[in-house]
């Protein structure tokens, strides 16, 4: 679990955290016993969906090299 969570934990800490995890799972386990078949899960409480902005270009943010963007070359010039 520590590797999955990318947390560097010493062996002593791992033992203590394991106990804590067990206790917590014990606490939340009562939820697993509830019959919630067919209940739609809620992932967010706003009624908002698909918030988009207009597809408009802000010309001030483009480099003015003929309307192009300048980036580093990937290939060397062929001589």
């Amino acid at each position: 679990m520590a590797r999955l969570a990318n947390l560097p934990i010493s062996d002593d800490m791992a033992l203590k955290l394991q106990k804590d995890l067990d206790a917590t799972v014990g606490l939340v386990d009562e939820l697993t016993k509830l019959d919630l078949k067919d209940v739609v899960p809620t992932s967010q409480v706003t009624d908002i969906t698909n918030v988009m902005r207009k597809d408009e270009i802000d010309k001030d943010r483009i480099l003015n090299i003929g309307g192009y963007f300048k980036v580093k070359a990937i290939f060397d010039e062929v001589s």
Binding site: L36, V39, V40, P41, S43
Partner: peptide, 8 residues
């Protein structure tokens, strides 16, 4: 399960 309980 928690998300479903959230709906309740």
């Amino acid at each position: 399960k928690a998300q479903q309980a959230r709906t309740k």
